[in-house]
Amino acid sequence: MAASLIIEHLTFQYSDGTPPALSDFSLTVPTPSCCAILGPTGSGKTTLLHLLVGSLMKHHPSSIAHGSIMINHVRYEPAPKEVLFPTVGLTLQDPYVQLSGIRETVHSEVALTLELLGTEPSMIDAQVQKTLRELGLYELSHRRPNTLSGGETQRVALATVLVADPLLLLMDEPATALDYGAQAQLKSTLRHLKEKTTLLITDTHIDFVLEVADRFVVLDKGTCILSCSKAEFLAHLPELGNLLPVDDWREVLKLRERRSPHTERVFKALGFT
């Protein structure tokens, strides 16, 4: 089951006098689907994710927020003040930090999540195995977490959250640390996942999310400057040069303007559907 997400006029300041990290942000994400939150460093992407999961309001009680967030038909005004895990799961930008470092094997690292949630001990093993299998990590079950490659660490980090079956999954720049091979693997995992979960993925680049997301939001200094479907996003791409690395894509879009008979198929092959 996937959770619906409706954000209305959300404004957030870390403290009085600082510029808002998010201003008047609204977003409705249908279920199940995948939404990409794009923008350069400091545009408010991470702030948004931490607001949604509840950790931000919890740890910054002096922060100022307005608006409302509705997750899975529960309304929070302005935002949740307690961590909503396992309803909402969040993977951090640095997968090495996501892993606790206090467990000896991948299996027990993933099981830690369920132990923390107080899951019935006899249920834990089966649930962990199922998650590891789904993410293609079963072979790594007995490896030490600190001996994994970057791509493997990223997927184990995802497993530590997915094992609790979150209804809304937030991922902070999951593609950043990965080479292309590992990215491709993660992409196929996420395409599968978005069939049953609501996904929010942030990125500073567009290549990765273009092949995964259905909806695109572009943030600039806390303000939403674009929130649209993939087709509209592509149409606006040439104007986003100062926020996202789109130079290459701009050239690709010029090809489209030529309207040769097969360009649409080229775009499909490139992930523009």
Binding site: S55, P86, G89
Partner: peptide, 15 residues
């Protein structure tokens, strides 16, 4: 923080 996001201190069930 990561542990908290994985349920550490969230649940009161843990014994």
């Amino acid at each position: 923080t990561a542990l908290e996001l994985r349920g550490f201190l969230v649940s009161t069930l843990s014994v």
